[in-house]
């Protein structure tokens, strides 16, 4: 029995359309035109206990709508969602007691309070027994290395420190499920891996189920065994990271170093990715043209110093998918 079951989840918003200019603003007061945006269009998936799932998609694709519904904040139009046997939005208070949520853009802590007092207050809100809270906190403070900031008010913390404190806060009541919404956004090169390592350990050692939405594909590649891709409210792909590559036809890269910096290199089945002096990068799908065939037809026409063939990096795969979606 999966821990999270989502079936045919639908949600649409009515968005007020404002006409540009002064006249539009005036007309907007009298009669507001609305546009219906389908944020979730029959989304279904299942997540088992202990999984670490990445959830990606362009802005406005429906990621946060899904997370909000799973967290019990938002009531969808139709569809079902069962998390640990409960419908989140029907039993909000019982449900939120069993999940942890971190929004990268927004802190769960009290801005003016020393971190330690925020933790104590949250402990009381979640009714964590005092001695258990102390034990959990000692552990989290140690692993996240936040002992030195515990007595500072949250507003004085750096983004990296704050994020680590927010992670600790979300786990005070030892929830079996953790939702992370862009937990590494805006972080420096040292903080990011630290956060990732912590999430990995929570997942592996404590068995916490993690759902991670992100724009940082490094998060996905270094953490997730499975990735779900959503766009325009529809689930486009769901599976291992390699399946995402399949989803775009397993594009490959051919990098060429030419003898001559001025010749144009083209092929009917290949797309030019970049051109930098004598270096040309082409993208192609092995289904359309075999690697050998492509190389032969190019070497027939041009003088080549060197060449390499590789799988496209995941950032570019996703960027390509996003481009396709926006173009469609």
């Amino acid at each position: 029995m999966p821990q999270i079951v989502v079936e045919n989840l639908c949600k649409s918003y009515r968005v007020a359309v404002r006409k540009p200019g002064m006249w539009g603003a005036i007309r907007g007061v009298a009669s507001r035109e609305h546009r219906v945006v389908q944020a979730l269009d029959s989304v279904s998936f299942e997540i088992d206990e202990g999984e670490l799932v990445g959830y990606i998609g362009p802005n406005g694709a429906g990621k946060s709508t899904t997370v909000k519904a799973l967290a019990g904040i938002l009531v969808p139009d139709s569809g079902t969602c069962i998390v640990r046997g409960r419908t989140p939005w029907r039993e909000r208070r019982a449900h939120v007691a069993e999940i942890g949520v971190v929004f990268g853009q927004r802190t769960q802590l009290w801005w003016d309070l020393p971190v330690r007092e925020s933790f104590e207050l949250l402990g009381e809100m979640y009714r964590v027994p005092k001695d258990r809270l102390r034990r959990t906190l000692t552990e989290l403070v140690d692993v996240l290395q936040i002992a030195s900031v515990l007595d500072q008010p949250v507003r004085q913390l750096s983004l990296g420190q704050r994020m680590r404190c927010d992670l600790a806060a979300s786990l005070l009541h030892t929830p079996p499920i953790l939702f992370l919404d862009e937990p590494t956004i805006g972080l420096d090169a040292i903080s990011k891996p630290a956060i990732r390592e912590f999430v990995r350990r929570q997942n592996r050692e404590e068995g916490v189920t993690v759902i991670l939405t992100t724009h940082d594909l490094d998060d996905i590649e270094s953490l997730c065994s499975r990735v779900m891709l959503i766009a325009s409210g529809k689930m486009l792909s769901d599976g291992p990271v390699s399946a995402l590559r399949e989803a775009v036809g397993g594009e490959r890269r051919l990098t060429l170093d030419l003898e001559d910096t001025h010749t144009e290199v083209t092929h009917a089945a290949a797309r030019l990715v970049s051109r930098d002096g004598a270096r040309v990068v082409l993208a192609f799908r092995p289904a359309e043209v075999s690697t050998a065939e492509l190389i032969r037809s190019i070497t027939d026409k041009h003088a080549i110093k060197d060449l390499t063939v590789e799988e496209a990096p995941i950032e570019e795969i996703v960027a390509g998918i996003y481009r396709e979606i926006e173009g469609a």
């Binding site: 909000k68 967290a71 019990g72 904040i73 909000r92 208070r93 019982a94 939120v96 007691a97 949520v101 929004f103 927004r106 769960q108 949250l122 809100m125 979640y126 009714r127």
Partner: peptide, 13 residues
């Protein structure tokens, strides 16, 4: 400021 979501995430009224 969008802070109301934060209140909904806690098991309190």
């Amino acid at each position: 400021k969008g802070d109301f979501d934060r209140l909904l995430l806690r098991p309190c009224s």
